[in-house]
Design a protein around this nucleic acid. Sequence first.
DNA 1: AAAAATCATTACCATAGGGTAACAAATTAT
DNA 2: ATAATTTGTTACCCTATGGTAATGATTTTT
Lengths: 190, 190
Amino acid sequence: MQNLIKAINHYISLSDEDINIIDQLFVKKELKVNDSFLTEGGVCKEFAYINNGLLRHCIINNGEEETFYFSTEYDFVCDYESFINKAISKKSIIALEDTTIYSISYSNMQLFYSKVKFGERFGRLLLEDVFTKAINHIISSHTDAAEQRYLNFMSSFSHIQQRIPQYYIASFVGVTPQSLSRIRRQLVKK
Amino acid sequence: MQNLIKAINHYISLSDEDINIIDQLFVKKELKVNDSFLTEGGVCKEFAYINNGLLRHCIINNGEEETFYFSTEYDFVCDYESFINKAISKKSIIALEDTTIYSISYSNMQLFYSKVKFGERFGRLLLEDVFTKAINHIISSHTDAAEQRYLNFMSSFSHIQQRIPQYYIASFVGVTPQSLSRIRRQLVKK
DNA sequence: AAAAATCATTACCATAGGGTAACAAATTAT
DNA sequence: ATAATTTGTTACCCTATGGTAATGATTTTT
């Protein structure tokens, strides 16, 4: 729970009372490899902090599963669209490694916003961060060719890059594993 | 100012006092065609609501200008990354039409968050909306071929589609104007 | 350890989209 | 109205990436 407190504290300052509240609202959960945090067709019922482990966000398109994001230790994870609107999600979030999370339900999250002194501000600041990353991701995928997108991935996710199989990286980069392999070969040449 | 109040009121309920505050914090501004709301290399010093008009978000890459978003009447507009961190922006936001905005400075925005009763919540809820759209955009550009991305554009921006030149649409879709022309021809055939 | 399964690489051909250029259509300026 | 400029379309060739298949390499299972 220490890490979670630290992560929230990064955005807002927490009183002892706030910490107590957080302690009561979040629940520790364990995911084994291949367990789902969220499954396509269900509703995302929790917002979570990853204490350790690695998750993969994917979506099925024309029967093809595409990986579009990775979340790892010290990240917050959620399908906001589904969580916020209690809407059916098209996404799945699946453990690539055994993962420990601190999870909070929707209703508890609302309590967090109202009871923690700067709770709303935390929500806003966290979203500002993730939104900013999302925009940069959009621009990169708009602007950059596959090789550069791969390099972008390698620098954005340098800390977890060795823990992810090539074919998921290929999917994230938006190419086939064959193309990624070719791109990697060309990069070695240089 | 009526429209702005309505737009904020969509997310949070506003007291008369709140409305008074908003009235004092936002400033009406006019942009002529080709005027910039934000210029590359500068800092985004304002967050704004578009009362009427049309803006184009772009970024320069290898000397090539790429359009990656459009904002129009009833939208909020800002380069969050720059605004929040007072950081140099790589983006420009330029008027495609004469545009009227209600603008608020960074420091006034902080006053908004603290003085308007549910100000922080407004910030969070608005970001939840824009973030959700961003994610869907990422997934679409990840998943869909050019023709489908064009169709997605046509449905997401159906209300303003006729007001935007083809070459900006092509850029948004991520193809050359020649390719877009080809795609459009093929769609007509069908 | 051997066999099976999974993952990564390479090769070959097919195709979507880029680049250049020419032209056509539409808009703007004179 | 005419000329000039800007925007959109078409054609041609080229390149990056996809798809299929075969082969190696690695990991997992027995």
